[in-house]
């Protein structure tokens, strides 16, 4: 991988809006970062100047439009709640891009992005940079699904699954994956990109193994430094513990050890 120098600057919020009752989107201009960020990479966000909350919060790059970076997020705790209360014109400190990227040089494969909830985020950016043939998105209910308008400009086929059946297929995202496998016929042609909660990753990887499908997963762990210094965000691989933030977050299925 080419070595790029990450940047860390205060940026001004352009827009901070609610897309659904669960999903929000914040955007800001950061030309230097927009130029060097690649799909799968994340940034570390300081939401408050006063170091409270103390650690930065990691977020994936959701979309890049010229100089503007967009982040898709949900409110889960103090940091994300404070972020949701930020108004246009307020500031955030952003450090990035961090981590590795999805494999972009695959040929003659059917690219299937599988996102659980907000885990769909990196695949919109991926879809901006290479063909993604299927976007599979799972959520508890339709509030957790990305609105159609957010897929504008992307050509891949969208298949939604909700646990309560309020939108798309009823069930888990693996049901959507099964549908794709049936549709394509030859599972070996598929290549998966997966991001989402641990349980979902495990279920998808188990299916991939069963059908002999290759792919890679973004392994998101709690982070402190985000640059490989604290050894807090480890992922179990066949080659021992690796840092999610620096060696990942993207790991090939082949390298992962799932308990």
């Amino acid at each position: 991988m080419r070595k790029i120098k990450p940047v860390d600057e205060w940026v001004t919020i352009r827009e901070n809006i609610r897309l659904t009752p669960r999903l929000l989107k914040v955007s800001f201009d950061f030309p230097k970062l927009a130029k060097i960020a690649r799909p799968g990479q994340f940034l570390q966000m300081a939401i408050e100047d006063a170091r409270d909350p103390f650690l930065r919060r990691p977020f994936t790059v959701y979309r890049v439009k010229r100089n503007t970076i967009e982040i898709l997020y949900e409110v889960v705790g103090k940091g994300s709640r404070l972020l949701s209360e930020k108004k246009k014109g307020e500031r955030l400190k952003i450090m990035g891009p961090l981590g590795n990227t999805f494999t972009m040089s695959l040929k003659k494969r059917i690219h299937v992005a599988v996102g659980g909830g907000v885990g769909i985020a990196p695949f919109i950016f991926l879809g901006q940079r290479m063909p993604v043939h299927y976007f599979l998105m799972g959520a508890r209910s339709k509030e957790g699904l990305l609105p159609n308008a957010e897929f504008r400009g992307l050509t891949g086929k969208k298949i939604f699954a909700t646990e309560d059946g309020s939108c798309g297929m009823k069930g888990f995202v693996t049901a959507a994956l099964e549908k794709v496998i049936r549709e394509v016929g030859d599972a070996g042609k598929l290549y998966l990109f997966v991001c989402g909660p641990k349980k979902m990753l495990e279920a998808v990887m188990e299916m991939a193994e069963r059908f002999g499908i290759e792919g890679e997963a973004s392994m998101d762990e709690r982070m402190a430094c985000g640059i490989g210094a604290c050894l807090g965000c480890m992922v179990k691989t066949r080659d021992g513990y690796k840092t999610s933030c620096k060696d990942g977050t993207v790991f090939n299925f082949k390298d992962l050890l799932v308990d």
Partner: peptide
């Protein structure tokens, strides 16, 4: 894992 957890300050 988990090895880290954020606390106040």
């Amino acid at each position: 894992m988990p090895r880290i957890y954020e606390t106040p300050a």
